[in-house]
Amino acid sequence: MTIPLDIDDATMFILNKFLSESLFLILTVQRNLRGGRDMKKRNLAVFILVICVSVLLVTMGGCAKKAVKKAEITGEEPPAVEQQVPLEDQAAKEQVAREQALREQALREQALREEALGEQALKEQAAKEQAPTVKEEVKLEDIHFDLDKSNLTPEARKILERHADWLAKHEDCNLLIEGHCDERGTTEYNLALGERRAASAAKYLTDLGIDKARIETISYGEERPLDPGHNEEAWAKNRRAHFVVISE
């Protein structure tokens, strides 16, 4: 089957007209032959119909090819696709927005629950903060740790024993223990390590008889160095637990 591929517009027009007319003719013939009296004729009619539709389809294919060819040759069609920025599928967007809304609602509820707790905590904190003040005049000596360690050295234990004595004599004072690390290592691991250092200092103090309720801990990881240097001397200073005295 050979099909003329480069058909000009006039030929196309005639061909299409011919096809649609013969299609109409065949349909009429077929309708007249309804009832199956003459199977042979009917089959012939269907055969012609089928051929005509094929020819029509192929011709259309030829036209499509022609359009592609034209674009390929000149490359001067306006850019292939015109787009608006941003490009978002509206339906998909709505779907995402719906899901988002649901998720956010859950989060909001969670947040409200948390906030209720948080606000209470904040109020308590505020109440606490109004009365207690940091007693900057009291300087309790820092304790230091080995690299990547949170266990207490003998020196650190001695210092903590002195702090325990002081705290026993100053019942009106509470303690905030800050855990710190040197700059080496990861932010997150060092936050955990700082937490550990503060916790081991706190535990030793409570073991020495200081009321647990008087001690708070916080970790700053490697984020609040005492010495900004990048050498062993600075690092040793920075691996520390720092004590902030708060009066009620």
Partner: peptide, 11 residues
Amino acid sequence: GELITGKRYTG
């Protein structure tokens, strides 16, 4: 010597 792709954007 031919066009590979072309786009027009408005925004």
